[in-house]
Simulated assay, not measured.
Amino acid sequence: MPPLSTPRYDHIGQGYAHTRKEDPRLRDRILAALGPARTVVNVGAGAGSYEPRDRHVVAIEPSDVMAGQRPRELAPAIRATADSLPLRDGSVDAAMTVLSLHHWDEGQERGVRELRRVATGPVVIVTCDPEVSGAMWLMADYLPEVAALDHRTFPRPAQLAAWLGGRTEIVVVPIPRDTSDWTLMSFWAHPERVLEEDARNATSGFARMEPAVVHRVVTAVRRDLADGTWDARHGHLRRLDEYDAGLRLVLNLPS
């Protein structure tokens, strides 16, 4: 993870909360996975999406930019990193992290083990399977650089299970067409979103690319939408209500 003084999302997190609103269906999955836990640590808490409102939450977020977008009704976030949580062993009922793990860099394994250390009950990780996301049209046809980045930065679900120990369930989470959380995976249904700067910039995949790469992809998608090439290849997706673009919920319980 970047040094606490310069978290990655201090650079790429501006305006994040405008397009990355929580999807109620994913929220319900997360709450169900947390079970009856009353105290929860949310690591990489960001702007507060998917954070339970009916439980005591300890929010951990290294980025001032992201923490500054948290709604006023949520508790302020503690500045700390995943690989060194300022909590005692077994001090909370559950731990969660939502699409944050790929930013923990060299601290990933220790961070995952920290989730297990501090929680007496479930650990819930929402992440991406890069083998699946890399096959989506955007990465496969236009943006192989993000596919390569995802393969480097997203641990495979089996690796997460090994780090966590105990009993682990990997749940496939199809992404609805009408999701309000505009992750890069949500672009499966909305190629026009590639042309929207705000939508691109609120995804770490695009935000971490060089400007020349972004320009190349935008130009190619705009051309292929205009001349019908995209619809000829992928128009069948417009008839789907949901799609597996690689989103996964990892639920771990202690032995």
Score class of each variant (00 low, 15 high):
173 V>N: 09
150 D>Y: 15
125 I>E: 14
161 A>G: 12
134 G>V: 01
154 F>T: 11
173 V>M: 15
169 E>L: 05
129 D>V: 10
132 V>K: 11
191 P>A: 12
167 R>W: 05
180 S>I: 07
164 L>G: 06
204 S>G: 06
193 R>N: 02
145 E>P: 10
147 A>I: 10
122 P>H: 14
140 A>L: 07
123 V>D: 12
118 V>D: 06
142 Y>I: 02
117 R>I: 11
156 R>D: 02
163 W>K: 00
191 P>F: 08
123 V>H: 09
120 T>E: 07
138 L>N: 14
174 P>A: 11
129 D>R: 06
132 V>M: 06
130 P>S: 05
190 H>F: 11
149 L>E: 13
147 A>H: 03
203 T>V: 09
136 M>L: 05
182 W>L: 10
115 L>Q: 01
180 S>R: 15
114 E>S: 01
132 V>D: 10
122 P>F: 06
133 S>R: 13
127 T>H: 15
197 E>S: 02
198 D>W: 04
142 Y>E: 04
123 V>W: 09
133 S>N: 08
169 E>N: 03
181 D>M: 04
155 P>V: 14
154 F>V: 06
143 L>E: 08
151 H>C: 07
204 S>L: 01
170 I>F: 13
202 A>K: 00
115 L>A: 09
172 V>Y: 00
172 V>I: 13
186 S>L: 09
155 P>C: 08
153 T>S: 14
170 I>Y: 02
118 V>F: 11
196 E>Y: 02
126 V>P: 11
147 A>Q: 13
141 D>P: 03
195 L>M: 07
199 A>T: 09
186 S>N: 01
194 V>L: 03
125 I>L: 14
124 V>F: 10
135 A>I: 12
173 V>I: 15
196 E>F: 00
114 E>I: 04
206 F>H: 02
148 A>I: 08
159 Q>H: 02
134 G>Y: 04
174 P>R: 05
141 D>Q: 03
204 S>Q: 07
115 L>G: 12
202 A>T: 15
152 R>Y: 10
178 D>W: 00
196 E>N: 04
185 M>K: 04
198 D>V: 05
118 V>S: 01
184 L>C: 04
124 V>M: 02
203 T>S: 05
123 V>S: 05
143 L>V: 02
115 L>E: 03
185 M>C: 07
165 G>P: 02
171 V>F: 00
115 L>S: 11
192 E>D: 14
188 W>H: 12
151 H>W: 04
146 V>E: 06
185 M>S: 12
199 A>C: 10
143 L>R: 04
155 P>T: 10
119 A>H: 05
161 A>Y: 10
177 R>W: 04
130 P>F: 04
136 M>A: 15
142 Y>S: 10
148 A>K: 14
194 V>H: 01
140 A>Q: 07
150 D>I: 02
162 A>R: 13
147 A>Y: 12
152 R>D: 15
138 L>Y: 13
204 S>N: 09
179 T>Y: 00
122 P>W: 12
170 I>W: 04
115 L>T: 11
193 R>C: 03
117 R>E: 12
120 T>V: 10
117 R>H: 07
150 D>N: 14
158 A>R: 11
172 V>E: 15
115 L>D: 06
144 P>Y: 05
195 L>F: 06
179 T>V: 05
182 W>D: 04
201 N>E: 10
180 S>M: 07
177 R>N: 03
183 T>V: 04
191 P>K: 04
124 V>E: 07
160 L>N: 07
